[in-house]
Each structure stands twice: as structure tokens, then as C-alpha cells.
């Protein structure tokens, strides 16, 4: 069909354009921002990494985790401990934290995924609930510093780059987000990404195509834990502090809400979800210092009702509306 092939080209060109434009905006952004805004923007970037991972699991593979905050916490603690107790440079701890979470994710996923249904959701819920308490245990106190938590010194920009420490951390995080985005995009468009979607849509048929369903589910869980762990590791450096109570169940639920509000099963959904995660609670506490979470909750409900396909769905609708108008005019 000639129409579809001529549609495919501008589609991919439009996507390249969109990614390029977003990249340019993200690179130039710190110039326009205050120190605190730069910090917030950095938080958005690192949450986006976590949400990319969670979206692979929930959006593309159809599994539910109510406990990804636990992997965020593990990543943060690995970095904080390696930097503070072992003197390892902060930049080298990020991939280590990711790998630790990959391994824990796979080990955790193997038994949980053997069982059908919602066992994974329940097991992750348990993990998120237990982790802050585990971090406070006396046995680990030599490393975790118990309830006190660990301070991480803020790194300066290296190689004499003319950047403030906050600006440097912004670009440092942006680098990891770019990598995370690239790897996710590569994986999702290839046979493994298609297998992940096939498992979500029709697990029995996927198996008949030769897809080892439990292997890919476990690996997807591990990979999403890696992404979230890297985000957590970055947060330890950016926030310069980790403590058990920063990683309550609340964080896990926020991740899940953000990915649904951002847009399940889309790459952009992660970025939109991250913006929501940072901006809306801030706005909420500006509106009412007494009950910010009530306002946050109401915002969540409104978003879900107004945009069942997430922010990505809304943006797409607007975008298509714009690009369709001239075509309709030409046809008339």
C-alpha cells in the first residue's frame, strides 16, 4: 500500500526531529535555570531513567511491580556505601549499583515469576515494605549507618569544565539518561522487545513462537531493576544523602502512578511521568502546605480520568490534530 509506506518515512523523520529537539533543549536547559531548578531538573532526569526501566516491565511486558522503590534504594545505598566506606569514585559506583540491582532483580524474579498471576506484585510489595526496616538493622549498621543515613560529598565538575557542581551533576545524569534511552530503544525495537510485548499480549502464543516466557519475564524484571538501581545510585550523588525513610512504600507507588500518568508502553511516557513526579508534589505544597498529598492525590485522579492513555496520549492527540488539519484542508 503506497499510502502506508509514504506515511512511514515522515513518521520516522518526525521522531528523529523530536528526539533531536528534546536533546537540544535538555542540553541547553541549565543555562536558563537557577541552582535549585537545576537540581530539580536533575531529579526529573534520574526519575526518567527509573521510569524507563519500570515501563519496560509494566508497559511492555505487562508485569506489575509495587516495589520498585526498593531497587532505587538498593542502588542509592550501593553508591553511598562504596563512596563513603570504600572511597570508590562516585562515577564508578553507578554501573556497579546497576549490576547489583540486575543480579538481585533476577534472583528475586526467578521464584516470584514461577508462580502465575499477581505473585510478583505481592512479592515486590513485600520487598518495598521490608527494605527500609532492613536498612535500619544493627547487623548492617557499620555500612548503612542505621537510621542516621549516609552523607555523600557533592562532586565538582572535572577537567576544569566551566560548570557549577549542580550543572555538572545535571549533565552527568543526562549522560546516563541518554544511554538508558538508547539501550531501551534498541532493545524494544528488536526481537527481544517484540517478545516482551508478545508475552504481554498472548503468553501462550508467544511460547508457541519459541519465546521462553519465564526467561524473558525474569530478564525484563532484572533489567528494570538495573535501570531503577542506576537512577537510585545517581540520586545518592545528587541528593548527597541516603536514609532508610527516603525510600518508603510511597516512592514505589509514586513510580507506578508516574508511569501510568506518563503513558504506559511508550518511551516518552517515562519523561512525562518524571516531570509529573517532581512538578506536581511541588505545586501541591505551594497550593497547600497543610495537605499537599491530598492535592497530589486529586491531581492523580484527575489525570487518570482526563487522560486514560497518559500524558503521551494527550500530546499525541494534540500533535495529530495539528498535523491532520492541513491534510484535511487539502483534501476538501
Amino acid at each position: 500500500m503506497p499510502a502506508s509506506s509514504s506515511q512511514a518515512l515522515p513518521g520516522s523523520r518526525r521522531r528523529t526531529l523530536l528526539i533531536g529537539a528534546t536533546a537540544v533543549v535538555l542540553v541547553l536547559l541549565p543555562v536558563l535555570l537557577t541552582q535549585y531548578q537545576t537540581f530539580q531538573a536533575t531529579m526529573i532526569l534520574l526519575y526518567a531513567i527509573a521510569l524507563l526501566g519500570l515501563n519496560m516491565l509494566v508497559g511492555y511486558n505487562g508485569q506489575i511491580s509495587i516495589g520498585h522503590g526498593a531497587f532505587f534504594a538498593i542502588g542509592a545505598y550501593v553508591t553511598a556505601i562504596l563512596v563513603s566506606s570504600f572511597g570508590i569514585p562516585y562515577w564508578a559506583t553507578i554501573p556497579i549499583a546497576g549490576l547489583v540491582c540486575l543480579v538481585i532483580g533476577i534472583l528475586f524474579g526467578i521464584p516470584a515469576l514461577r508462580l502465575e498471576g499477581h505473585y510478583l506484585a505481592l512479592a515486590t510489595f513485600g520487598l518495598a515494605l521490608a527494605l527500609p526496616q532492613i536498612l535500619k538493622l544493627h547487623v548492617f549498621e557499620a555500612w548503612t549507618k542505621g537510621v542516621v543515613g549516609i552523607f555523600v560529598r557533592k562532586p565538582k565538575a572535572p577537567f576544569g569544565l566551566p560548570l557549577t557542581a549542580d550543572q555538572w551533576l545535571y549533565y552527568f545524569t543526562l549522560f546516563f539518561l541518554a544511554l538508558a534511552f538508547l539501550f531501551a530503544a534498541n532493545l524494544l525495537r528488536g526481537r527481544i522487545g517484540q517478545a516482551m510485548i508478545a508475552i504481554r499480549d498472548q503468553p501462550a502464543a508467544a511460547a508457541s513462537m519459541g519465546v521462553n516466557v519465564s526467561y524473558y519475564k525474569t530478564m525484563t524484571f532484572g533489567l528494570s531493576a538495573l535501570y531503577t538501581g542506576v537512577a537510585g545510585a545517581l540520586s545518592a550523588v545528587v541528593v548527597q544523602f541516603v536514609a532508610p525513610d527516603s525510600f518508603s512504600l510511597h516512592l514505589s507507588i509514586s513510580f507506578l502512578l508516574a508511569i501510568v500518568i506518563g503513558g504506559l508502553g511508550t518511551m516518552w511516557g517515562a519523561l512525562f511521568g518524571a516531570v509529573f513526579m517532581v512538578v506536581v508534589p511541588n505545586l501541591a505544597s505551594e497550593i497547600s502546605t497543610a495537605a499537599p498529598w491530598a492535592i497530589y492525590g486529586v491531581a492523580v485522579i484527575i489525570f487518570m480520568y482526563v487522560m486514560p492513555t497518559g500524558l503521551v496520549g494527550l500530546v499525541r492527540k494534540i500533535w495529530n490534530g495539528f498535523s491532520r488539519t492541513p491534510a484535511a484542508g487539502g483534501a476538501a
Binding site: Q194, I197, D201
Partner: peptide, 29 residues
């Protein structure tokens, strides 16, 4: 038992899944 979120072409391509061998590392890069 078609993959409901996929196009016709994507469904058919999925049928060839077992014919290819590339793993995670190759696909990530």
C-alpha cells in the same frame, strides 16, 4: 491468539522469532 497491540506485519515477524538467535547484548547495541 494474535498479538493484539501489533500490526499484521509485526505479528508475522514475531512468527519468525525462533529463526533468529541474537541475544540481549547484541540487541542492546
Amino acid at each position: 491468539a494474535l498479538f493484539g497491540s501489533m500490526s499484521v506485519l509485526e505479528n508475522v515477524r514475531m512468527g519468525a522469532f525462533a529463526r533468529a538467535r541474537s541475544g540481549y547484548l547484541q540487541n542492546l547495541f
